[in-house]
Design a protein around this nucleic acid. Structure first.
Lengths: 335, 335
DNA sequence: GCGGTAGCGGCCACTTTCTGACCTCAATAG
DNA sequence: CTATTGAGGTCAGAAAGTGGCCGCTACCGC
């Protein structure tokens, strides 16, 4: 701990933990003279981390936002929070930052001591599954996502079992290349060693993955990028529903509420046209109903059925009569 | 860049970015001899970050999970992903890690260059607000959360305007102490300088906060911890809705779907009793309707009204007639 | 089992940096 | 104005970092 670089790191972490530090206190904590502290501060500044200083009574140092990101020194709890947040974010990240999210997740998880990893597992078990646990949508296992992200990063071969679209289970051995989020789904792009070709795998159809422990030299993907590869694959096997509806509310309002998942076009001042791609029609119904406005369905017809189905179900809800089951029922799960 | 400590930092970042590195490549990247690299690796190990090495052909170094967390070296995109993930996580974090989440958020945001901060703002504008953008639920402004977290951390006085429960606006000057998440809501605990007493403030009633620039010496909170303080305050002014319903579906099924937010008691084989506390009735409606089963409402009566309201709205949805706005409308927002 | 590869670490000589002490100066708040 | 606190120069001794060399050991493929 008497080292210079370790001290520099500690200084950085102190400056990150609290904004203002009187120089004397820092010097005392780092067990060096005030002069050396000043030199350490200089070192940080030379490294590109702008440390600002206030002179005079009650002065001190503070770490400001600079051109580059300093290494983040986080404590245990913060690391757990990071992992949880990233896991949740990965579930429905926009296509733009999804990759960065898993990259960061892999980074954090990789260096996290085992005890923290266990805490993350425990905590995220009680977290909301993907997109509201919607009726049909199989939740994505966040641990799987992490595992695959690490395997991609480290170029480690994987074995897993995969359930193809036709329902057949197969065992695969794959060189993982990249994770791709597309249309609210995750795909693993990799080189299938038994098929001797590139494939993309939907994460929700993939299970019991484990690394083989062998590393490989990354191959070159025969596509512009991984996202393009996946897109090419799923375009020929379309699935899901294209929803279109006219909503009796201003486009701006609608955009604010559900613009994230849909394309909103202004029709006139009071109406707009909403388009979205969903896997599950219930999802579309929820999106539309939360708008608190009337709407008309353009397509598909099934959506209208579904909506009326919901309407009926909700319409026939009645106050509960005499208690049907004694309220002293034995089984109860909290949370 | 020729510095030893900066090189150590760079080495750490390289080891975090990819798992396996051949020693020769690392040495070349860091512009040092292999011998010095080995010494650098040693240095890291002495600092407590376990670097493992593989000998022999195809050997190399890898950063393993150790006892302590090394400083995270993240790139720009990853930092943005971190901030986005943490913001989202803060919105509905469990009470246990909520505080760590904002702490981490403050840490990340504090050192983030302005350009990244702007990207975060832009991106999180298109992110789902708290709990599905539920109709009534005032979304929490994530920027506010960040701002307050930083102010708490840095012991900086705040001014803001506050709308009390009775609807009266007041201007407050406060020494922020801690942020607390309780029952899916955020509170700021602080010492109110005009009232000369400790208060807790609901974040969704707090607006136009700005730091005064003056720091203060933290006072001691007259309570076990900040959460206890808030709890004591809100227990005397309960709010929200206690929902109870009988669902015509087995308890196990229901528990799997919405057990996270509710208490489910088995009534008999085919029915169960669901209880939940919600701020917003729409939220309860959504939870119940996604169960895909009939149900009866025990309480409150308003819930029944709301359900029937939804039922009517959904019931009168019709297919769209002739296109109301030309589909070549100029304004279109994707994403 | 054998040879090649690649990490391990001791040793040495040389160079560079670091450190604390002492000094003067500069900004800031009361 | 004055006390406080950071900025920074200089100096000498101490400590480190560095590269080159060495023999050693673990591991892999043949």
């Amino acid at each position: 701990m008497a080292n210079t670089s370790s001290r520099t790191l500690r200084l950085l972490s102190l400056l990150q933990a609290r904004r203002y530090w009187p120089g004397a206190e820092l010097a005392q904590r780092l067990q060096v003279s005030a002069r050396t502290l000043r030199r350490d501060i200089d070192r940080l500044r030379e490294l590109g981390y702008p440390v600002e200083a206030q002179r005079g009574v009650d002065g001190g140092y503070q770490l400001a936002a600079g051109a580059a990101l300093p290494p983040l020194v986080v404590d245990d709890e913060e690391a757990v929070a990071l992992a949880i947040g990233l896991r949740a974010a990965a579930q429905d990240a926009g296509e733009g930052i999804a990759e960065a999210t898993v990259r960061a997740l892999a980074k954090v998880v990789q260096v996290m001591p085992g005890r923290l990893r266990r805490r993350v597992e425990a905590l995220s078990a009680m977290t909301v599954p993907a997109g509201w646990g919607g009726a049909g949508g199989g939740g994505l296992d966040p641990a799987l996502l992490t595992q695959l992200a690490v395997a991609c990063r480290d170029s480690e071969r994987l074995r897993f079992s995969y359930t193809a679209a036709d329902g057949r289970h197969t065992e695969r051995q794959v060189e993982p290349h990249r994770l791709v989020a597309l249309r609210r789904r995750w795909y693993l792009v990799g080189y299938d060693l038994t098929r001797h070709d590139w494939r993309s795998f939907r994460l929700d159809r993939l299970s019991s993955a484990r690394g083989t422990g062998t590393r490989f030299r990354p191959r070159e993907l025969p596509a512009a990028d991984a996202a393009a590869f996946v897109r090419a694959g799923i375009d020929q096997a379309r699935v899901g529903h294209e929803v279109e509806a006219i909503v009796d509310a201003p486009g701006a309002t609608v955009r604010q509420r559900i613009g994230r998942w849909s394309t909103v076009e202004d029709a006139d001042d009071q109406r707009c046209r909403v388009r979205m791609s969903v896997d599950d029609l219930d999802w579309a119904v929820m999106a539309l109903v939360t708008l608190d406005a009337d709407f008309q369905v353009v397509s598909p017809a099934e959506l209208l059925d579904r909506i009326h189905d919901w309407g009926h179900r909700l319409g026939r809800v009645r106050p509960a009569g005499p208690a049907p089951g004694a309220s002293n029922g034995p089984v109860s799960t909290k949370f």
